[in-house]
Write a protein that binds this DNA or RNA. Structure first.
Lengths: 199, 199
DNA sequence: GTCTATAATACGATAGAC
DNA sequence: GTCTATCGTATTATAGAC
């Protein structure tokens, strides 16, 4: 099963994820993508017969699964949920600065490029985000949140994160991520106070 | 001076703003843009001799100025700053749903497409966001916020807004904007409690 | 499953007439 | 300031040999 991670098809998905992050879906050519993946051009339409749109859908789903683990790991490390989420923001700030502000969110990039142009791709983006939203909500529920509170809070948390990445990339500065981290943590803690008996 | 708003050059800027919103910078061709603006192809390089990059820079600056008024108007209508900002989120939700989730943020779209590819365009996006951040911070300062609190809070507010637009467009649902609106308002009110003498 | 070649089109950009 | 024509190049996608 591990060989799936080294095959040509998987290299194409990983290259797509990387390129969509830095230059978006429309800004990435398939030839360039195949070259980056060190994959033969013939493999492109062998593995993705429906072309760029299919590749985009699968790259987005791939990205959704990959970063699902990061959200789950944040909660698994324990501590209150506010601190857990703040850790994710700080980790993202480090990751972004470490890549010279290239490695943004591949799903957000695809969304802004083609959500209004390709309905299948828009749906793929919605599903990818949903995977993360569910993971965040699950983490909050495990910390004592009622289900509907958890859903709403998760939407807010991921929104703040995605927007902060955009602003940080534009400014080439982690400030928006760090600023958002603090307020998001406080918002979670304020909400969590209602879940548990007051000390 | 008003004729600037009806000239060919201005029609090109407005068309660029609209198209970048719905299909991003890389996804928009210059021929398509000129056609949308009902501008002759010859005008493209007459008004923007440096080509697409220059057009992009000016579209982003144009968008920055346009929406500056919306942020200022929100605070000018009075009420506490939390309610003022919540109004902007709700207005954006209406605008987005009313356009069938096409009219996102043009600066965010350009940022994700080319922030890591064109340094001049990245700087233009940073300046555009900065215009909005300053307007938000000024509104908060007018409501009693210390300058550095205002800056940080503004970064958080705009991050939440931009991210919520991305999620709402992907889901074709205003939920992320509405969810974020509530938590952002609460965060502002919580912060504002420290600026004024407790009632 | 890979390779080469190529079709058909769109891209950004330029030239020169008017 | 506009119009038309066009140059290279890059794009997505196919075809057919191996």
């Amino acid at each position: 099963m591990d060989d799936k991670r080294t095959g040509t098809r998987d290299r194409l998905l990983r290259a797509g994820e990387g390129l969509f992050r830095t230059q978006g879906y429309s800004g990435t050519g398939l030839k360039e993508l195949a070259q980056t993946a060190r994959a033969p051009w013939g493999s492109m339409y062998h593995f993705f017969p429906r072309g760029k749109e299919q590749l985009g859908e699968e790259v987005v789903a791939y990205a959704g699964e990959i970063y699902l683990g990061a959200w789950q790991a944040a909660f698994r490390r324990g501590g209150d949920p506010g601190v857990a989420i703040e850790r994710v923001f700080l980790a993202e700030a480090r990751l972004l600065a470490g890549s010279d502000y290239r490695d943004g969110c591949p799903i957000a990039s695809v969304t802004l490029d083609v959500a209004s142009v390709s309905e299948p791709l828009r749906a793929a983006c919605a599903s990818g985000f949903e995977v993360w939203l569910d993971a965040i909500a699950q983490g909050l529920i495990a910390a004592g949140a009622p289900a509907d509170d958890a859903k709403a809070l998760a939407g807010f948390i991921l929104s703040a994160m995605e927007g902060a990445i955009v602003l940080s990339r534009a400014a080439k500065d982690t400030a928006p991520l760090l600023q958002s981290a603090r307020f998001v943590r406080q918002a979670i803690e304020r909400e969590a106070a209602g879940w548990l008996p007051p000390s």
